[in-house]
Computed example of a mutant assay.
Amino acid sequence: MIEKKLLAEGIAPSYFIEGMLWNVPNDRFFGNYREMWAACFNWVNSNDPSNLTTGSGMHWLVRDNENVCWPSANFQTFTAALKKYWEM
C-alpha cells in the first residue's frame, strides 16, 4: 500500500494492525481468504474504533494524544486506504 502511494509510511505500524484484528470476533474468520477479508473488514468498519483494545487488553487501541494508542486520523486513513487497495 505504501509502494502504491495509498498510505504514507508510519501511519499503520504492524502492531496496531495486529491489535485491530485481535478485536475481530472469531466467527468472522471463515471461508476462503476473500470471504474472510470481507467479513473482518466489514466488522471493523461497522464498529466504533474507540471500543477497540490492544491484544493485551491493557490499553485502548485508538485514541488521540496517547503515546501507546493509534491516533484516530491514522486509523481512519488506514481503513480508507485498505478499502481502496482491496478494490484495485
Rank of each mutant, 00 (worst) to 15 (best):
A81M: 03
G55W: 10
N26S: 11
R63F: 05
N65Y: 09
T79V: 01
C69E: 03
Y15L: 05
E9C: 11
R63T: 03
T79M: 06
L52T: 05
T77R: 15
W37A: 13
S14F: 14
N26G: 08
F78V: 00
Y33S: 14
P25R: 00
L52Y: 05
W70R: 00
S46D: 12
F29I: 08
L21H: 13
S56A: 05
W86S: 12
T79K: 01
K4V: 05
L61F: 09
P13Q: 11
R63G: 07
N32D: 14
V24Y: 05
S14W: 05
S50D: 04
C40F: 10
E87P: 03
F30N: 05
C69Y: 00
I11A: 15
W37I: 12
V62W: 00
E3F: 04
G19N: 15
A8Y: 14
S72P: 06
N74M: 01
W70D: 06
W70Y: 05
W60F: 10
V68I: 07
W60G: 08
L52E: 06
L21S: 12
G55S: 07
G31Y: 08
N67G: 08
L6H: 13
D64L: 00
G10L: 11
K5D: 14
E3C: 07
E66N: 07
A12F: 06
E66A: 09
I17Q: 03
E18H: 07
C40S: 06
F78G: 06
T77M: 10
P71L: 01
I11V: 15
N23Y: 00
E18D: 07
Y15M: 09
N23Q: 05
P25G: 01
G55Q: 08
S14P: 13
M1N: 15
F78I: 03
I11F: 12
H59R: 05
C69M: 02
T54Q: 10
I11S: 14
N45E: 04
E3P: 09
R34Q: 02
T79Q: 01
L7F: 15
I17M: 02
N26R: 13
G31E: 09
N51L: 00
I11L: 12
L52K: 10
F78P: 10
I17G: 09
W43Y: 10
E18M: 09
N32S: 03
G57K: 04
F30V: 08
E9G: 04
D27I: 04
F75D: 10
F29R: 02
G19W: 04
N47E: 15
T77V: 11
D27A: 08
V68F: 04
L7G: 08
I11P: 09
S72D: 02
V44T: 05
R28D: 04
N32W: 10
N26M: 14
T77K: 07
A81D: 04
T53V: 06
P49F: 00
V62N: 02
K83Q: 11
E9A: 11
M20T: 14
F16P: 05
V68Q: 07
Y33A: 09
C40G: 05
P13M: 08
F41Q: 02
M1Y: 15
K4T: 12
Y33D: 11
N26L: 15
R34G: 01
W43V: 08
A8F: 14
R63I: 02
L52H: 07
S46T: 02
T79C: 10
G10P: 08
K5L: 13
N42Y: 04
